[in-house]
Design a binder for these strands. Structure first.
Length: 683
DNA sequence: GAGCACTGC
C-alpha cells in the first residue's frame, strides 16, 4: 500500500525513471520517439513484458491466476495477446476479458486490434449492450462488459467457447463482477480445463485466492491458484495529511488550492468532493477568490465535472489548459476510475464519497456521504502520478486514514437483489441462499428479493421460477417490476406506452443537468395531472415527433439529449423482447386509465396514501414518505399514488409517481392486498 | 419546497 516517495527507489525500468526526471516537455519528446518504434518493440518495452513467460507458465499450471498490478502496467492489453500467441485460441477457442465499463471495453479492443494489425471486429472484437463488434467465427480475443458475459451464461451456461476468462478490475467489485466470480467457480467444477484470470489493482488478493482455492490439505504445493504481482509505470506521489482534523472540508479544499497555487510549480489540480452542490459552490468560490490574486500571478481556472452535466460541459475539462493558467478540476467519484484527465499533478481528497445503499427493512435506497476506503484513497492519489511525480493532499489525519476500511462494501451486499435472484434461478440455481458468493449478501436482502418476486408471481409456492412469467422476467434486461408492466401490457392494450415508460425509467438523467427556473417552465409544458410516468411518455413522444430526435431541440427544451437517445435504444431493445414473447405491440391512445392500471399491475407493492399533514405512508410497511420536489405531483393533491422508487437523502422521497384509484390495488393484486383490505376505503 | 455518487444488462 505504501506510496513511493521522491528520492527513494521507484518501480519501473531505469529508462522510465530517467525520463520522468526530465521536465514535462521532455516527456512529450520521449513519447513521440517511442511512437516511431515498431509496435512489437513498443510492446516489449512495457513493464509487463518481463513477466510474460511467468504469466504464461502460471496460467498453464494453475486453474486460476490472480494478477495484481496498478493501472497502466499493460495487463489489460497484453495478457490476452500473450495467451493468443501461446496457443490458447487454437481450435476455435476464445479468450474473454471483462471490464466494468463500456468505454473501457471498446477502447481497449481498438488498441489491441491496432497492435495486432487486424481489423477491429475480426480477430479482436468487443461486446457491450447496444453495440456488438465481433465475428463468432473469427474473433479470438473478445473484450466485453461483465454484464454482457453474464448474459451469455443464459445461452451457454458453461461458456464453453472460452478457454480463458479474464475478469479485469475485479477490485471494483461491481455487481456483475461478483456474480460472475461465483458462477465461474461453479463452471470450473464442470470444466477443469477453463482458466480464470482475476486482475486487481489492490493487494487484497487473498480474498480471491481463498475463494478459488479448492485445495483442502495443508500442503500448499497442491493449491490450484497462483498470485503474481506486476510492477506499474506510474510516478511517485507524495502523500500529505492534515495534522488536525478539519471542520469543513470544502473550505479546507479551497484553501489548499490557493496554497498549492502560490507555493508549488505549475501543474493542474483535481479536487474529489461528494456531489453536485459542493462542486458548484466550490467552483464559484474559487473563481471569486481568484480575483484577489496579484495581477502578475498565474491565472486559475476551476471546472466542474459530474455525471449530471451535459456532454458538452463535461468535455471542457479535456481542453488543453491555456497559457499561464492552472486548471482546477472539481470532481465527484466520476474521476476516480471512469474519467482520466491528463496533466494532473496535485490531488486534493476530501476523504468522503456518496454511496447508495438498499435497506431490506423498508425497501428504500439511501444516498449518504460515507468515508472512502483505503483502496479508494489510493486510487484517487494515483490520479496525480500519470505524467510526472505528483502530490496528494488528504484532508484528514494520517491516523484517520489507518482507521478507514481496506475496500468499499461490495455492491452485491448493498443492492436490491431482485434481478440477481431471478437470474440465478433462471440458471438453475434453486437455493440462492446457499449460492457460493465470494462475499455473501446479507440474508435479509435475499429474503426481501424473494418476497417481491413471489408477489409478482415470478416464483411459485416452492420458490421455483414460474413459466413463462418468471422465466421471461429473468430474461428481460430491466427490473422485475418494470418487466411485469411490459408483460402485462397486453391486458390493457398499451405495450407502446409501457415500452416508452420503461425505457425512460431505466434512464433517470433526462433532466438532471439543469435546475433553473427556465427548466421548470419547460417541464410544465410536458407535465400532466396524472403524474410523472405519463409526463415522461409525453417528453419522449415530443422528442420523436416534434423534436425529430435532434440535439438542438433537446437543448431548446432543457432536456438531456444523451439520455433521450439512450432511452430510444433501450426502447428498441425492449421491443424486440416483447415481440419474442408474443406480446402484441398496441397503443391505447390517450386512455390514461389503462396506462395507470397497467403501471399498478407491476408496482402495486409501491403504493402510498396521503396523510392529513400532506406526507404519505406506504400501504405495505406504513413507512412515512414524501413527494420529491422534482415530481409534477409535488404541488398537487394526490390521495393515492404508486411510485417507481424511494431515495432517502434528507427525507425519504418517492420519485416518479402516478395517481391511482385504490380499488385497482385489490383488483390487480388481491394476493398482496387481501389481508389489508380493511385499510382501503370502501368502493 | 429539494437537489441524486457511479456503473451495467
Amino acid at each position: 500500500m505504501a506510496f513511493w516517495k521522491p528520492g527513494t527507489v521507484a518501480p519501473g525500468t531505469s529508462v522510465d525513471r530517467e525520463a520522468e526526471k526530465e521536465s514535462s516537455e521532455n516527456i512529450v519528446t520521449f513519447v513521440n520517439l517511442s511512437s516511431n518504434l515498431s509496435i512489437q518493440q513498443q510492446r516489449k518495452r512495457l513493464p509487463i513484458f518481463k513477466s510474460r513467460d511467468q504469466v504464461l507458465y502460471l496460467v498453464e499450471k494453475y486453474q486460476t491466476t490472480i494478477i495484481v498490478g496498478q493501472t497502466g502496467c499493460g495487463k489489460t492489453t497484453q495478457i490476452p495477446q500473450y495467451l493468443n500467441e501461446a496457443g490458447w485460441t487454437a481450435g476455435d477457442r476464445v479468450i474473454a476479458c471483462t471490464q466494468p465499463r463500456r468505454v473501457a471495453a471498446t477502447t481497449v479492443a481498438g488498441r489491441v486490434a491496432s497492435e495486432m494489425n487486424v481489423k477491429l471486429g475480426e480477430e479482436v472484437g468487443y461486446s457491450i449492450r447496444f453495440d456488438e463488434c465481433y465475428d463468432p467465427n473469427l474473433t479470438r480475443i473478445k473484450y466485453m462488459t461483465d454484464g454482457m458475459l453474464f448474459r451469455e451464461t443464459f445461452l451457454d451456461p458453461l461458456l464453453s467457447q472460452y478457454s480463458v476468462i479474464m475478469i479485469d478490475e475485479a477490485h471494483e467489485r461491481s455487481l456483475y463482477t461478483d456474480i460472475l466470480l461465483g458462477i465461474l467457480k461453479k463452471i470450473q467444477k464442470k470444466r477443469p480445463e477453463l482458466r480464470i484470470i482475476i486482475s486487481s489493482a489492490t493487494l487484497d488478493a487473498e480474498v480471491f485466492y481463498d475463494f478459488y482455492n479448492t485445495n483442502s490439505t495443508n500442503d500448499s504445493s497442491k493449491d490450484n491458484v497462483s498470485i503474481i504481482s506486476l510492477e506499474g509505470r506510474t510516478f511517485p506521489v507524495d502523500i500529505h495529511y492534515l495534522e488536525e482534523p478539519c471542520q469543513d472540508y470544502v473550505e479546507s479544499a479551497i484553501q489548499t488550492v490557493f496554497d498549492i497555487h502560490v507555493k508549488e510549480p505549475p501543474g493542474d489540480i483535481i479536487i474529489f468532493l461528494t456531489g453536485r452542490d459542493e462542486i458548484d459552490n466550490t467552483v464559484g468560490e474559487i473563481s471569486q477568490r481568484a480575483t484577489t490574486l496579484p495581477r502578475s500571478a498565474m491565472k486559475i481556472m476551476p471546472l466542474p465535472i459530474y455525471a449530471g452535466l451535459s456532454s458538452e460541459q463535461q468535455m471542457e475539462i479535456f481542453e488543453p489548459t491555456p497559457f499561464n493558467t492552472r486548471k482546477v478540476v472539481v470532481a465527484t467519484n466520476i474521476a476516480e476510475a471512469s474519467i482520466t484527465i491528463e496533466g494532473i499533478v496535485y490531488i486534493i481528497d476530501c476523504g468522503f464519497v456518496k454511496l447508495r445503499a438498499f435497506s431490506p427493512k423498508t425497501g428504500m435506497e439511501s444516498l449518504t456521504v460515507v468515508p472512502v476506503s483505503k483502496a479508494s484513497a489510493q486510487q484517487r492519489a494515483g490520479r496525480a502520478g500519470r505524467v510526472m511525480p505528483g502530490k496528494a493532499y488528504r484532508l484528514y489525519t494520517e491516523e484517520s486514514f489507518y482507521r478507514l476500511r481496506d475496500s468499499s462494501i461490495p455492491e452485491i451486499q448493498r443492492s436490491n437483489l431482485a434481478q440477481v435472484v431471478l437470474h440465478l434461478k433462471a440458471l438453475g440455481i434453486d437455493n440462492v441462499l446457499r449460492f457460493d458468493f465470494m462475499t455473501p449478501p446479507p440474508a435479509e436482502l435475499m429474503i426481501r428479493a424473494l418476497e417481491l418476486l413471489y408477489s409478482l408471481r415470478a416464483l411459485d409456492d416452492y420458490g421455483r421460477l414460474t413459466m413463462p412469467l418468471g422465466m421471461q422476467l429473468a430474461e428481460f434486461p430491466v427490473d422485475p417490476m418494470l418487466g411485469k408492466i411490459l408483460l402485462d401490457s397486453y391486458q390493457f392494450q398499451c405495450a407502446e406506452e409501457m415500452l416508452t415508460i420503461a425505457a425512460m425509467l431505466s434512464n433517470v438523467f433526462v433532466n438532471s443537468s439543469t435546475s433553473s427556473a427556465e427548466f421548470e417552465d419547460e417541464k410544465r409544458k410536458f407535465s400532466v395531472e396524472e403524474g410523472d410516468h405519463i409526463t415522461l411518455l409525453n417528453v419522449f413522444n415530443a422528442f420523436i415527433t416534434r423534436g425529430k430526435k435532434s440535439a438542438r431541440w433537446c437543448h431548446q427544451h432543457c432536456l438531456n439529449f444523451r439520455a433521450l437517445s439512450r432511452a430510444l435504444s433501450i426502447r428498441q431493445q425492449l421491443k424486440k423482447y416483447l415481440e419474442r414473447f408474443d406480446v402484441p405491440i398496441e397503443s391505447c391512445g390517450n386512455d390514461t386509465v389503462k396506462i395507470r392500471k397497467c403501471l399498478s399491475s407491476g408496482y402495486f407493492a409501491n403504493a402510498a396514501k396521503m396523510q392529513p399533514n400532506g406526507s404519505f405512508r406506504t400501504i405495505r410497511d406504513n413507512v412515512e414518505l414524501h413527494i420529491h420536489p422534482s415530481s409534477v405531483l409535488f404541488t398537487r393533491n394526490a390521495p393515492w399514488v404508486i411510485f417507481h422508487e424511494v431515495v432517502e437523502t434528507t427525507k425519504a422521497f418517492m420519485r416518479e409517481l402516478t395517481i391511482i384509484d385504490p380499488a385497482w390495488l385489490t383488483e390487480l393484486a388481491p394476493h398482496f392486498y387481501e389481508i389489508k383490505k380493511t385499510t382501503l376505503p370502501a368502493h
